[in-house]
Protein backbone atom coordinates (compact mmCIF):
# COMPACT_ATOMS: atom_id res chain seq x y z
CA UNK A 1 0.00 0.00 0.00
CA UNK A 2 1.27 3.49 -0.88
CA UNK A 3 0.63 5.79 2.03
CA UNK A 4 0.92 9.55 2.25
CA UNK A 5 1.35 10.48 5.90
CA UNK A 6 0.94 13.90 7.47
CA UNK A 7 2.03 13.78 11.12
CA UNK A 8 4.23 10.67 11.25
CA UNK A 9 7.01 12.26 13.26
CA UNK A 10 5.30 12.19 16.64
CA UNK A 11 2.91 10.37 18.93
CA UNK A 12 0.23 8.10 17.51
CA UNK A 13 1.25 8.99 13.96
CA UNK A 14 4.78 7.77 14.68
CA UNK A 15 3.46 4.48 16.07
CA UNK A 16 1.10 3.95 13.14
CA UNK A 17 3.76 4.78 10.55
CA UNK A 18 6.12 2.24 12.19
CA UNK A 19 3.52 -0.50 11.99
CA UNK A 20 2.82 0.32 8.36
CA UNK A 21 6.52 0.33 7.51
CA UNK A 22 7.08 -2.94 9.38
CA UNK A 23 4.54 -4.73 7.21
CA UNK A 24 6.00 -3.30 4.03
CA UNK A 25 3.80 -0.32 3.21
CA UNK A 26 5.52 2.35 1.13
CA UNK A 27 5.39 5.65 2.99
CA UNK A 28 5.85 9.30 2.10
CA UNK A 29 6.03 11.74 4.99
CA UNK A 30 4.77 15.29 5.01
CA UNK A 31 5.48 17.76 7.78
CA UNK A 32 6.70 21.23 8.58
CA UNK A 33 10.08 20.46 10.20
CA UNK A 34 12.69 19.17 7.79
CA UNK A 35 15.00 17.83 10.49
CA UNK A 36 12.21 15.91 12.24
CA UNK A 37 11.06 14.46 8.91
CA UNK A 38 14.58 13.25 8.13
CA UNK A 39 14.90 11.62 11.55
CA UNK A 40 11.58 9.84 11.21
CA UNK A 41 12.38 8.71 7.68
CA UNK A 42 15.60 7.12 8.94
CA UNK A 43 13.73 5.45 11.79
CA UNK A 44 11.11 4.00 9.44
CA UNK A 45 13.78 2.85 6.99
CA UNK A 46 15.52 0.86 9.75
CA UNK A 47 12.33 -0.65 11.12
CA UNK A 48 10.55 -1.16 7.82
CA UNK A 49 10.72 -3.42 4.83
CA UNK A 50 10.21 -0.87 2.09
CA UNK A 51 13.30 1.32 2.29
CA UNK A 52 13.47 4.97 3.25
CA UNK A 53 10.24 6.98 2.92
CA UNK A 54 10.31 10.13 0.83
CA UNK A 55 9.70 13.39 2.65
CA UNK A 56 8.14 16.72 1.74
CA UNK A 57 7.21 19.98 3.39
CA UNK A 58 3.60 20.69 4.20
CA UNK A 59 2.02 22.85 6.90
CA UNK A 60 -1.64 22.60 7.89
CA UNK A 61 -1.45 26.29 8.69
CA UNK A 62 -0.56 27.15 5.10
CA UNK A 63 -3.08 25.86 2.50
CA UNK A 64 -0.82 26.85 -0.41
CA UNK A 65 1.50 23.98 0.54
CA UNK A 66 -1.18 21.27 0.23
CA UNK A 67 -1.61 20.70 -3.48
CA UNK A 68 2.06 20.69 -4.49
CA UNK A 69 3.01 18.46 -1.56
CA UNK A 70 0.33 15.90 -2.39
CA UNK A 71 1.19 15.98 -6.08
CA UNK A 72 4.88 15.46 -5.38
CA UNK A 73 4.17 12.60 -2.98
CA UNK A 74 1.80 10.94 -5.39
CA UNK A 75 4.36 11.14 -8.17
CA UNK A 76 7.14 9.78 -5.94
CA UNK A 77 5.02 6.85 -4.74
CA UNK A 78 3.55 6.12 -8.15
CA UNK A 79 0.00 6.79 -6.98
CA UNK A 80 -1.70 6.91 -3.60
CA UNK A 81 -3.71 4.17 -1.92
CA UNK A 82 -4.09 5.81 1.43
CA UNK A 83 -3.70 9.21 3.04
CA UNK A 84 -3.29 9.46 6.83
CA UNK A 85 -3.57 12.71 8.76
CA UNK A 86 -2.54 12.62 12.40
CA UNK A 87 -1.15 16.15 12.58
CA UNK A 88 -2.92 18.76 14.64
CA UNK A 89 -2.51 21.15 17.51
CA UNK A 90 -3.52 20.79 21.13
CA UNK A 91 -3.95 23.17 23.99
CA UNK A 92 -5.75 22.95 27.29
CA UNK A 93 -8.85 25.10 27.64
CA UNK A 94 -7.13 27.33 30.18
CA UNK A 95 -4.12 27.89 27.94
CA UNK A 96 -6.28 28.67 24.91
CA UNK A 97 -8.55 31.05 26.82
CA UNK A 98 -5.44 32.89 27.99
CA UNK A 99 -4.02 33.20 24.48
CA UNK A 100 -6.64 33.82 21.83
CA UNK A 101 -4.08 34.09 19.04
CA UNK A 102 -3.05 30.56 19.87
CA UNK A 103 -6.75 29.54 19.98
CA UNK A 104 -7.30 31.05 16.55
CA UNK A 105 -4.30 29.23 15.11
CA UNK A 106 -5.46 25.94 16.62
CA UNK A 107 -8.95 26.35 15.14
CA UNK A 108 -7.44 27.21 11.76
CA UNK A 109 -5.09 24.24 11.73
CA UNK A 110 -7.33 21.58 13.25
CA UNK A 111 -10.46 22.49 11.33
CA UNK A 112 -10.06 24.73 8.27
CA UNK A 113 -6.57 23.56 7.37
CA UNK A 114 -7.30 19.89 7.89
CA UNK A 115 -10.58 19.99 5.95
CA UNK A 116 -8.99 21.73 2.98
CA UNK A 117 -6.03 19.32 3.07
CA UNK A 118 -8.53 16.44 3.04
CA UNK A 119 -10.27 17.96 0.03
CA UNK A 120 -6.99 17.94 -1.89
CA UNK A 121 -6.25 14.41 -0.69
CA UNK A 122 -9.74 13.29 -1.69
CA UNK A 123 -9.26 14.58 -5.21
CA UNK A 124 -5.89 12.89 -5.52
CA UNK A 125 -7.28 9.57 -4.29
CA UNK A 126 -10.43 9.71 -6.42
CA UNK A 127 -8.50 10.70 -9.51
CA UNK A 128 -7.18 7.14 -9.60
CA UNK A 129 -10.47 5.51 -8.63
CA UNK A 130 -10.52 5.74 -4.85
CA UNK A 131 -8.60 4.85 -1.74
CA UNK A 132 -8.64 5.39 1.99
CA UNK A 133 -8.51 8.68 3.85
CA UNK A 134 -7.77 8.16 7.54
CA UNK A 135 -7.94 11.26 9.73
CA UNK A 136 -7.42 11.62 13.46
CA UNK A 137 -10.19 13.59 15.11
CA UNK A 138 -10.83 13.19 18.85
CA UNK A 139 -13.33 12.10 21.47
CA UNK A 140 -13.16 15.74 22.50
CA UNK A 141 -15.45 16.53 19.58
CA UNK A 142 -18.26 14.28 20.77
CA UNK A 143 -19.65 16.56 23.43
CA UNK A 144 -19.02 20.13 24.56
CA UNK A 145 -16.98 19.63 27.71
CA UNK A 146 -15.35 21.99 30.19
CA UNK A 147 -11.68 21.02 29.79
CA UNK A 148 -11.70 20.85 25.98
CA UNK A 149 -14.12 23.53 24.77
CA UNK A 150 -12.07 25.12 21.98
CA UNK A 151 -9.99 22.10 21.03
CA UNK A 152 -13.13 19.95 21.14
CA UNK A 153 -15.00 22.36 18.87
CA UNK A 154 -12.27 22.10 16.23
CA UNK A 155 -12.52 18.31 16.38
CA UNK A 156 -16.35 18.32 16.41
CA UNK A 157 -16.29 20.20 13.13
CA UNK A 158 -13.72 17.82 11.72
CA UNK A 159 -15.68 14.73 12.78
CA UNK A 160 -18.86 16.11 11.14
CA UNK A 161 -16.96 16.78 7.93
CA UNK A 162 -15.43 13.29 7.89
CA UNK A 163 -18.80 11.66 8.45
CA UNK A 164 -20.29 13.60 5.56
CA UNK A 165 -17.33 12.68 3.37
CA UNK A 166 -17.98 9.03 4.05
CA UNK A 167 -21.67 9.38 3.23
CA UNK A 168 -21.05 11.37 0.08
CA UNK A 169 -18.21 9.46 -1.54
CA UNK A 170 -18.08 5.87 -0.21
CA UNK A 171 -20.07 4.69 -3.24
CA UNK A 172 -17.45 6.29 -5.49
CA UNK A 173 -14.58 4.38 -3.86
CA UNK A 174 -13.40 6.83 -1.24
CA UNK A 175 -13.24 5.13 2.17
CA UNK A 176 -13.11 7.60 5.05
CA UNK A 177 -11.85 6.46 8.45
CA UNK A 178 -12.40 8.89 11.30
CA UNK A 179 -10.30 7.99 14.35
CA UNK A 180 -11.40 9.32 17.72
CA UNK A 181 -8.61 8.72 20.19
CA UNK A 182 -9.32 9.07 23.87
CA UNK A 183 -6.49 10.05 26.15
CA UNK A 184 -3.32 8.48 24.79
CA UNK A 185 0.08 8.93 26.42
CA UNK A 186 2.14 10.83 23.87
CA UNK A 187 4.17 14.01 23.70
CA UNK A 188 0.92 15.88 23.02
CA UNK A 189 -0.58 14.93 26.35
CA UNK A 190 2.71 15.05 28.28
CA UNK A 191 2.19 16.97 31.49
CA UNK A 192 -1.51 16.18 31.75
CA UNK A 193 -2.69 13.78 34.39
CA UNK A 194 -3.73 10.58 32.62
CA UNK A 195 -7.39 9.73 33.30
CA UNK A 196 -8.63 6.14 33.73
CA UNK A 197 -8.48 4.21 30.45
CA UNK A 198 -5.52 6.24 29.16
CA UNK A 199 -3.99 4.37 26.23
CA UNK A 200 -0.56 3.76 24.75
CA UNK A 201 0.24 4.69 21.15
CA UNK A 202 1.15 1.18 19.94
CA UNK A 203 -2.17 -0.58 20.68
CA UNK A 204 -4.04 2.45 19.36
CA UNK A 205 -2.03 2.23 16.14
CA UNK A 206 -2.80 -1.49 15.79
CA UNK A 207 -6.49 -0.75 16.11
CA UNK A 208 -6.31 2.07 13.57
CA UNK A 209 -4.44 -0.10 11.09
CA UNK A 210 -7.16 -2.71 11.34
CA UNK A 211 -9.80 -0.04 10.73
CA UNK A 212 -7.91 1.19 7.66
CA UNK A 213 -7.68 -2.35 6.28
CA UNK A 214 -11.38 -2.97 6.89
CA UNK A 215 -12.63 0.47 5.92
CA UNK A 216 -14.36 1.11 9.25
CA UNK A 217 -15.83 4.63 8.96
CA UNK A 218 -15.34 5.62 12.60
CA UNK A 219 -13.46 4.12 15.54
CA UNK A 220 -12.71 4.98 19.11
CA UNK A 221 -9.25 4.08 20.37
CA UNK A 222 -8.56 2.63 22.85
CA UNK A 223 -11.80 0.69 22.49
CA UNK A 224 -12.94 1.49 26.03
CA UNK A 225 -13.50 5.12 25.02
CA UNK A 226 -16.46 4.05 22.93
CA UNK A 227 -18.30 3.22 26.16
CA UNK A 228 -16.88 6.19 28.04
CA UNK A 229 -18.20 8.53 25.36
CA UNK A 230 -21.47 6.61 25.13
CA UNK A 231 -22.10 7.45 28.76
CA UNK A 232 -20.86 11.03 28.51
CA UNK A 233 -23.14 11.69 25.55
CA UNK A 234 -26.13 10.52 27.61
CA UNK A 235 -25.42 12.80 30.56
CA UNK A 236 -27.94 15.64 30.87
CA UNK A 237 -26.72 19.22 30.74
CA UNK A 238 -27.25 19.89 34.43
CA UNK A 239 -24.80 17.07 35.15
CA UNK A 240 -22.25 18.29 32.59
CA UNK A 241 -22.34 21.73 34.24
CA UNK A 242 -21.38 20.12 37.55
CA UNK A 243 -18.71 17.61 36.56
CA UNK A 244 -15.14 18.50 35.70
CA UNK A 245 -14.65 16.33 32.59
Amino acid sequence: MNVLFLGATRGMGRALARQMAARGDQLYLLGRDEDQLARSAADLAARGKAGAPGVGMCDLGDPTTFEPAIAEASAALGGLDCVVVTAGLFGTQDALEDDLDRAYTLLQVNFAGTVVFCEHARRALMAKGGGTLCVFSSVAGDRGRKPVGIYGASKAGLSAYLEALDHRYRADGLVTVCVKPGFVKTGMTAGLKPPPFAGEPEPVARRVLKAIDRGTPMIYAPFMWRWVMFVIKLLPRFVMRKVGF
Binding site: R14, R39, S40, A42, D43, A45, A46, R47, T186, G187, A190
Partner: peptide
Protein backbone atom coordinates in the same frame (compact mmCIF):
# COMPACT_ATOMS: atom_id res chain seq x y z
CA UNK B 1 11.39 7.21 26.38
CA UNK B 2 9.41 9.13 23.75
CA UNK B 3 12.69 9.95 21.97
CA UNK B 4 13.15 6.49 20.51
CA UNK B 5 13.98 6.90 16.86
CA UNK B 6 16.65 5.02 14.98
CA UNK B 7 18.62 7.72 13.18
CA UNK B 8 21.00 5.59 11.16
CA UNK B 9 21.28 1.88 10.68
Amino acid sequence: TLADRVLAW
